[in-house]
Deep mutational scan, measured.
Amino acid sequence: MAEAPPRRLGLGPPPGDAPRAELVALTAVQSEQGEAGGGGSPRRLGLLGSPLPPGAPLPGPGSGSGSACGQRSSAAHKRYRRLQNWVYNVLERPRGWAFVYHVFIFLLVFSCLVLSVLSTIQEHQELANECLLILEFVMIVVFGLEYIVRVWSAGCCCRYRGWQGRFRFARKPFCVIDFIVFVASVAVIAAGTQGNIFATSALRSMRFLQILRMVRMDRRGGTWKLLGSVVYAHSKELITAWYIGFLVLIFASFLVYLAEKDANSDFSSYADSLWWGTITLTTIGYGDKTPHTWLGRVLAAGFALLGISFFALPAGILGSGFALKVQEQHRQKHFEKRRMPAANLIQAAWRLYSTDMSRAYLTATWYYYDSILPSFRELALLFEHVQRARNGGLRPLEVRRAPVPDGAPSRYPPVATCHRPGSTSFCPGESSRMGIKDRIRMGSSQRRTGPSKQHLAPPTMPTSPSSEQVGEATSPTKVQKSWSFNDRTRFRASLRLKPRTSAEDAPSEEVA
């Protein structure tokens, strides 16, 4: 009796068929016929556990003709996506030579605008209408194809895939403007070719909807975003200037109206006075309405000098805001240009540092100066060695804690006790272990408590650290204090090793 083939788990290929790579489910599931010992083939499952149809090819690079078809379809799909992405970037994010197409579109729109203006002049109306009709045909074809291509290429973005995504893309403001202008152009052409009475009025009214094509030149909205950011950044200043200017306008108009309503027919109503105030304070000055009385002229002159300053403030605020924003954008561009080279330089330096163990090129690091100058660790070890030599091999803490019996001779020589300023008595072995921070803190506390006492003391002649007598400086308080830590004499004296002298005989010792 033939044995059933062993159940295979995992992703390994079956024996005897090495080139074939078959994806098997996580659990080997066989058909009921196979479990019962029949000759049925096992049921194939996909990666998600769903059964595959009987005629479906197995996924994998070596699955025969199905694999070749899959490779061809995958390559075609990649080319399709690449083309779609390229078209989308050309239309929505132009760079380099892609601006040539947008310059061509701008020339078409500008020519249409010029011809629309010439069509309103009686001398050039006939020729402009003929040229404009031909140009409209060209623009309908160009913009119609462009609109379709834009909607198709938007599928390269995830949020615009599918018919719902394309509809979302078509609802964008600039796409809506394109659609309105396209419909208006078709209506103008249809009305112009019919030759009816309505054609002339339709051409004159709907052609100027094509002015909206100038708005579509900035599809990404960079200028509007820049203007919005400047207004938002200086909103408080703008609101303040406009508010005060509006108050000056209504008060000036009302007072001039009261002064001129009886003697001047131009100011017969408050609305006429508001019109005069707006034209005057905005420095336009049509001259259609002028005050005639001396009181009205004085009020107009005073409020004009006051109001023009507030009406001119928004222009200066926006101008300075634009300058600052442009400078910030230039700085951001320079930062973006330098970020990648800086990151590459840091990575290269780290690779060199991690692979080169000698690091002989590091001549400006802490390790280099640590090898030249005595390190703080060596100074600490030197302090501890000196203290243990004086205390008979014991550390200062051990000397303080060691009990001394009554009447027993002390094995240590008597030492002079010292007192730290602002604290109780402490171990004499710690007097010379006072660090730089303690010395600086002690000097600052003395300056806070009594700076007036220092200038009363007789001035001391500054001497070099080499000429100081070591026996005289029994305490860190003898170090000359200065008002600034930048004094080199104080810094050098604080680094010197001060020996400890006994109370009975204080021989001067120098520590090399």
Rank of each mutant, 00 (worst) to 15 (best):
1 M>V: 03
2 A>S: 04
2 A>P: 09
4 A>D: 08
4 A>P: 13
5 P>R: 11
6 P>R: 05
6 P>S: 08
7 R>C: 09
7 R>H: 06
7 R>P: 04
10 G>A: 06
12 G>A: 03
12 G>V: 13
14 P>A: 06
15 P>S: 13
15 P>T: 15
18 A>V: 15
20 R>G: 14
20 R>H: 07
20 R>L: 09
21 A>E: 03
21 A>G: 03
23 L>V: 05
23 L>P: 13
24 V>M: 04
26 L>I: 11
27 T>P: 04
27 T>R: 10
29 V>M: 05
30 Q>K: 11
31 S>C: 12
32 E>G: 09
36 A>E: 08
37 G>V: 11
39 G>S: 11
40 G>V: 04
40 G>R: 08
41 S>A: 08
42 P>A: 04
42 P>Q: 08
42 P>T: 12
43 R>P: 07
44 R>C: 07
44 R>P: 04
46 G>D: 04
48 L>Q: 10
49 G>V: 03
49 G>A: 04
50 S>G: 06
52 L>R: 11
52 L>M: 14
52 L>Q: 09
53 P>T: 09
54 P>Q: 12
55 G>D: 15
55 G>C: 15
55 G>V: 11
56 A>P: 03
58 L>H: 08
58 L>V: 12
59 P>H: 09
60 G>R: 11
60 G>W: 13
61 P>T: 10
63 S>P: 08
64 G>C: 12
65 S>T: 11
65 S>P: 12
66 G>C: 07
66 G>V: 14
67 S>P: 12
69 C>F: 08
70 G>V: 05
72 R>L: 13
73 S>Y: 10
74 S>P: 13
75 A>D: 13
77 H>Y: 06
78 K>E: 15
80 Y>C: 06
80 Y>F: 10
80 Y>N: 03
81 R>P: 13
81 R>C: 09
81 R>L: 15
82 R>G: 11
83 L>Q: 03
86 W>S: 06
87 V>A: 12
88 Y>H: 07
90 V>L: 03
91 L>P: 00
91 L>R: 01
94 P>L: 00
97 W>R: 14
99 F>C: 12
99 F>S: 11
100 V>G: 11
102 H>N: 08
102 H>D: 02
102 H>R: 03
102 H>Y: 15
102 H>L: 02
103 V>I: 10
104 F>I: 07
105 I>M: 05
106 F>V: 10
107 L>S: 01
107 L>V: 05
109 V>F: 10
110 F>S: 09
110 F>C: 07
111 S>I: 05
111 S>N: 04
112 C>G: 08
113 L>Q: 12
113 L>R: 12
114 V>E: 11
119 S>P: 07
119 S>F: 11
120 T>S: 12
121 I>V: 07
122 Q>K: 04
124 H>Y: 09
125 Q>E: 05
127 L>I: 06
128 A>T: 10
130 E>Q: 12
131 C>R: 03
131 C>S: 06
132 L>H: 12
132 L>F: 15
134 I>V: 04
134 I>L: 11
136 E>G: 15
136 E>D: 15
137 F>V: 03
137 F>S: 09
142 V>F: 13
143 F>C: 05
144 G>V: 08
145 L>V: 10
147 Y>C: 05
150 R>P: 01
151 V>F: 09
151 V>D: 00
152 W>L: 02
152 W>R: 01
153 S>C: 09
155 G>V: 00
156 C>F: 10
159 R>L: 15
159 R>P: 15
160 Y>F: 03
160 Y>N: 02
161 R>L: 04
162 G>V: 01
164 Q>H: 05
167 F>S: 04
168 R>L: 15
170 A>S: 11
171 R>S: 14
172 K>N: 15
174 F>S: 10
174 F>Y: 12
176 V>I: 06
177 I>L: 05
177 I>V: 09
178 D>A: 08
178 D>V: 02
179 F>L: 09
180 I>V: 08
181 V>G: 07
183 V>G: 05
184 A>D: 05
185 S>T: 10
186 V>G: 02
188 V>D: 10
189 I>T: 07
190 A>P: 02
190 A>S: 03
191 A>G: 03
192 G>D: 09
193 T>I: 01
193 T>A: 07
196 N>Y: 04
197 I>S: 06
197 I>T: 07
198 F>C: 01
200 T>P: 03
200 T>K: 06
200 T>S: 08
200 T>M: 03
201 S>C: 01
201 S>T: 04
204 R>L: 03
205 S>G: 12
205 S>T: 14
205 S>I: 05
207 R>G: 01
208 F>V: 11
208 F>L: 09
211 I>F: 03
211 I>V: 10
211 I>M: 12
212 L>Q: 08
213 R>H: 10
214 M>L: 15
216 R>H: 08
217 M>L: 13
218 D>Y: 04
220 R>S: 11
221 G>C: 09
221 G>V: 02
222 G>C: 02
223 T>N: 02
227 L>P: 00
228 G>V: 13
230 V>L: 00
232 Y>S: 04
233 A>P: 01
233 A>V: 12
233 A>T: 14
233 A>S: 05
235 S>T: 02
236 K>N: 02
238 L>Q: 01
238 L>R: 01
238 L>V: 02
238 L>P: 01
238 L>M: 08
239 I>S: 04
240 T>S: 13
241 A>P: 00
242 W>L: 15
243 Y>F: 03
244 I>V: 02
244 I>L: 07
246 F>Y: 00
252 A>G: 12
254 F>S: 04
255 L>V: 11
255 L>M: 06
256 V>F: 00
258 L>R: 01
259 A>P: 01
259 A>S: 03
260 E>Q: 01
261 K>M: 02
263 A>P: 00
263 A>V: 09
264 N>D: 03
264 N>Y: 00
265 S>P: 12
266 D>V: 00
266 D>Y: 00
267 F>C: 00
267 F>V: 01
269 S>T: 04
271 A>G: 15
272 D>E: 09
272 D>G: 01
272 D>N: 03
274 L>R: 00
276 W>R: 01
277 G>E: 00
278 T>P: 00
279 I>M: 02
280 T>K: 01
281 L>W: 01
281 L>F: 04
283 T>N: 00
283 T>A: 01
284 I>L: 01
284 I>S: 01
285 G>C: 00
285 G>R: 00
286 Y>N: 01
288 D>N: 00
289 K>Q: 02
290 T>I: 05
290 T>R: 02
291 P>L: 01
292 H>N: 05
292 H>Q: 08
292 H>Y: 06
293 T>R: 00
295 L>P: 03
296 G>A: 01
296 G>S: 00
297 R>K: 15
298 V>D: 00
300 A>T: 08
300 A>P: 00
301 A>D: 01
302 G>S: 15
302 G>V: 14
303 F>V: 01
303 F>S: 03
303 F>I: 01
305 L>S: 00
307 G>A: 00
308 I>S: 06
309 S>T: 01
310 F>Y: 02
310 F>L: 06
310 F>V: 15
312 A>G: 04
312 A>T: 03
313 L>V: 06
313 L>P: 00
315 A>T: 14
318 L>I: 01
320 S>P: 02
321 G>D: 00
322 F>Y: 00
324 L>R: 00
325 K>E: 15
326 V>I: 15
328 E>K: 07
328 E>G: 01
329 Q>K: 01
332 Q>P: 00
332 Q>E: 09
334 H>Q: 00
334 H>N: 00
335 F>I: 11
335 F>L: 11
336 E>K: 01
337 K>T: 01
337 K>M: 00
340 M>V: 04
342 A>S: 02
342 A>P: 01
345 L>F: 06
345 L>V: 05
347 Q>R: 10
347 Q>P: 01
